[in-house]
Design a protein around this nucleic acid. Structure first.
Lengths: 412, 412
DNA sequence: AAGTCTTAATTCAAGGGTTGAATTAAGCGC
DNA sequence: GCGCTTAATTCAACCCTTGAATTAAGACTT
C-alpha cells in the first residue's frame, strides 16, 4: 500500500537516476552543472558520477574552455554501454530494431508474414529469430542488450498476468510476455503500440520537455497515448486512453468494436474512404490499399475535388472535437498528431483543426496547449517500445534489474 | 526538474507520512501491524510512533486481548490534536464547516447573501467572519486550526498566481487565496469544488480504498473530479476534468460556456427542465426553483408522465455516454455519481445507466469499473475542501508546514 | 617563469536514518 | 512461581547526504 522508499540506499538509486536522467535528456554537462540541475550537492554528484563512470555508463568528454579557473570536465552518456531492442508488432508486419543506449538506431529488420501473424506461436518464433538477426547484423552479443519492448495493436493488462487483448489481430489473453522472457536473455516490456509511440514522442520527439501531453494516432484504427507528469497514464488496468472509441454520436455509425458512434467510425481511414466513395457515388476510393486511398484523397482535395474536400472537412471537425474533448478532460500542454494517416492528413488540415479546437474547447485549458505534428514516422512504435525498457533502466538509476527483481517490483 | 528527495531527513518525513496515513485510513493498529502495513521495520515504527506520540498526533488506546504473549498496544489518531476548516463557496451560498482531525464535523455555518456574492471583497469578509464564528461556536482558538480549504465553482490555476476563473459567479483572475492567507493564521488551499468533492468521496466516501476513480456531479452545471493513483488529477494548469463541456453533439445545443453541443447543454438541470417544458408543451416546469423542478420531474416520471419519462430517458443516454467516455479515456476503477441533481436522479436512472454504459464503453475498461452513488450530500464540497488541507498535512507527515515553506514548495 | 587568482572537483567529518539482532517487557497457562 | 509466547525497545552496524575545507587545474599578472 505504502510506496515510500524507506532505506537510505534507495536514496542513492534515486539520485543516480536523477543524475543519469539529467545527462540523458539534458545533454552533456559538468559535475557542477549536474549539481545545479539535480539540486544535489557537488559532493554527492562526485560520488554518484564516480559510480556511473565505474559502471561504464558515463564517460568524461574533454573539458570546457575556462575563463580563468579550473575547467569543467564534461560528462556524457556512453552510448555504447548497452543496447535496447524495440519491436513493433503491427497488424501485418513485425518490425524489429536495435538501438544504442541513446536510442540511436543501429539495425532494423522487418518480418512480413501476413498469413501467420494471427498465431502467437509463430509471432514468438519470428520475434526471437529477428532479435538474434539484428544482434548478429550489428555484431553484438545479446548479453549487451539491456532490455526490449514490444508495442502491440491492442490492450495489455499489466495487473493480472501480462496478457494481450487485440481483436484486430485476433488475440485474446495471449501470454506473450511470459513466453518471450523465457526465451530471451534480457527483460522484456509489453504495451499498447499507441502508448509506446506516445512515449517516444514525449521523450525524444515532439513532446520533449513537456510533462503532460497526448499523442493521437490516426490510422486504420485510432489510438492515443497520454502522458501525465512525465509518465504514461495507464489507469486502473492499463486500458486508459482509448480515444478512438470515445462516443461522439448517440446511435451513430457502427464501429468495428461492436458499439456505435465511436470517433473511429468517423475518423478511421476506412471510414474516410467509405465516406468519400458515398459522396462521390463511386467505389474507386475503396478499390485500393488504404494508404494509397488516403494519399489519393488528400491530393484530390487539394486539387479541388469537392467530395474529397467535404470528406476532409468532416474529418477535421471530428478530429477537432476529439482533440477538444481530450483538452477539456486532460488539460495537456501539447497534443501531438501522428499515425500514418495523421501524417498524411495533418499538413492539410492542421490549421483548421487548431481553429476548430479553439472553438470547441474551453478557453483556459485551450490556451495552455499547442497542437503539433509528430516527429517520428514509420519506426515510431519500435522506438517507443524501446523507450519502455529505457524508462525502467533510467528509473533504476542504470542498474539493470534482474528478472526476479522486476517481477517482485510488480507485486503491490 | 528532478523531484527526488535527496536528504536522509526526508526519509523520516516520508515514513512519518506512511505511518500516519496507515493509521488515518486503516484505523487503529498496533506498532507491529503498522510495521507490516508500511513494510518498515518494527524499530523504525517504534521511533516514528514515538515522535507522533510526542507531537500529540497519536495516542495509545489500550491493548488487545492476548493469546499468551505480550498484548499489542493499540494506537489511534488523536482526533482533537488539530482542526480543519472546509469552505464551500457556492453559486449563491457560502458554507463554512469546522472539522476535527479525523474530519468529523463539529460546527457548520451558512452564509446566505446572494446579492453580494459576486464581489470578491465581500466574499473574503464573509469568509473571515464565518471562520471566526465557527471557531467561537466550538470554543476553539484559531491557532488549533491546521489548515483550511475552499472549493469554488470555477477553475483555479495553481501555476501562475493562484487565481480563479469562475464565470458562473462572474469572477475572473481573482487573487482570492493570497488575500485570505494574509488574513487568516493558517494555510489555506483553494481548488475547484468538484475536485474537492471528488477527493472527499475518494478518501472518506464511496471511493475509499480506490486509487483511480472519477466523481461526476450533476447540478445546475456539470462537474467532475478525477482521482488517479490516489491523487487528484489536475493536468498541466489544473483545469483537467472539465467533463461538463465534453462535446457530445457536433453543432449541438448552445451551452452557457459559449460553445455548443456540450454535455452540460443536455444534462444540466436547466437543460432537463427546458426539455420537459418543450415536450409537455407547457412552461410549468420552468416556473419554479431548479431543485423543485428536478424533484417534480422525477416524481412525474415515476407516476407515469410520458414526457417526464422521455426526459429521464434522454438524460440517461447522455449521462451513460459521458460516463462511458470517461471509462474509455481514464480507465477508472469506480465512477461516483453525485451533485444535487445526481442525487435526485440517481436512484431512478442508475440501473439503466449501468446497462447503457456497458453498451457504450469498451469491454476491458468497463469490466474494471463499478458505478455508484456518492456518499455525501450537501456538505460534500465543504468536506472536500477540508481534505485539501488534510492531504497536505498527511503528506508532510503531520508536520504543519509554515506558509513560507508552502510557497517555497510550489516553486519548481 | 613564478606567483596569484579563479573556478571545479574531491575529501572529510558530522549528522541523520534504517535495520536486524539482541534484549527487555508483558501477559498466559500450567 | 516458572516457562512460554509475542510485542516493543535498544543497540551497533551501515549507508547516505552535506557543508566546509582542501586539493586540482588553468589563466592572468608581473
Amino acid at each position: 500500500m505504502v510506496t515510500t522508499k524507506p532505506t537510505a540506499r534507495d536514496l542513492r538509486v534515486a539520485n543516480r537516476a536523477g543524475v543519469l536522467r539529467a545527462l540523458y535528456f539534458g545533454g552533456d554537462a559538468s559535475r557542477l552543472e549536474l549539481s545545479q540541475i539535480t539540486s544535489l550537492s557537488t559532493a554527492t554528484v562526485t560520488n554518484v558520477v564516480a559510480e556511473l563512470l565505474a559502471d561504464g555508463l558515463v564517460r568524461e568528454a574533454g573539458s570546457e574552455e575556462s575563463q580563468g579557473g579550473r575547467p569543467r570536465t564534461m560528462l556524457t552518456i556512453a552510448a555504447d554501454a548497452g543496447y535496447f531492442i524495440g519491436i513493433d508488432l503491427g497488424e501485418n508486419v513485425i518490425r524489429i530494431e536495435l538501438f544504442d543506449l541513446l536510442l540511436h538506431p543501429i539495425v532494423a529488420q522487418q518480418v512480413v508474414d501476413v498469413d501467420n501473424l494471427h498465431q502467437p506461436q509463430t509471432v514468438i518464433e519470428r520475434i526471437v529469430a529477428g532479435v538474434a538477426a539484428v544482434a548478429q547484423a550489428a555484431q553484438l552479443p545479446l548479453e549487451g542488450v539491456i532490455g526490449a519492448g514490444i508495442g502491440v495493436p491492442g490492450m495489455v493488462d499489466h495487473a493480472t498476468d501480462v496478457t494481450v487483448f487485440a481483436p484486430s489481430i485476433g488475440w485474446r489473453n495471449v501470454p506473450l510476455l511470459a513466453e518471450l522472457e523465457r526465451q530471451l536473455p534480457f527483460p522484456v516490456f509489453l504495451d499498447n503500440g499507441a502508448k509506446a509511440m506516445a512515449q517516444a514522442e514525449a521523450l525524444l520527439g515532439a513532446g520533449q520537455g513537456v510533462a503532460d501531453l497526448a499523442a493521437v494516432l490516426l490510422g486504420t484504427g485510432l489510438g492515443a497515448g497520454i502522458i501525465t507528469g512525465n509518465a504514461l497514464f495507464r489507469g486502473a488496468t492499463n486500458s486508459a486512453g482509448e480515444w478512438g472509441h470515445m462516443k461522439v454520436v448517440l446511435d451513430g455509425r457502427q464501429c468495428r468494436c461492436g458499439s456505435a458512434g465511436c470517433l473511429e467510425a468517423y475518423l478511421g481511414a476506412h471510414a474516410l474512404l467509405e465516406r468519400w466513395a458515398a459522396l462521390a457515388a463511386a467505389d474507386v476510393a475503396l478499390n485500393q490499399a488504404e494508404e494509397d486511398g488516403i494519399n489519393h484523397l488528400v491530393s484530390a482535395a487539394s486539387a479541388g475535388d469537392p467530395a474529397a474536400q467535404q470528406v476532409l472537412d468532416e474529418a477535421t471537425r471530428y478530429l477537432s472535437l476529439g482533440i477538444a474533448n481530450l483538452i477539456n478532460l486532460f488539460n495537456p500542454q501539447r497534443i501531438i498528431l501522428g499515425g500514418w494517416a495523421g501524417l498524411r492528413l495533418g499538413p492539410a488540415i492542421l490549421p483548421d483543426v487548431r481553429r476548430l479546437t479553439r472553438e470547441y474547447a474551453l478557453e483556459p485549458p485551450f490556451s495552455a496547449v499547442t497542437i503539433d505534428l509528430c516527429h517520428f514516422g514509420q519506426d515510431a512504435v519500435a522506438l517507443g517500445a524501446a523507450t519502455l525498457a529505457l524508462e525502467e533502466f533510467l528509473t533504476a538509476g542504470g542498474k539493470q534489474r534482474s528478472l526476479a527483481m522486476r517481477t517482485g517490483g510488480l507485486v503491490k
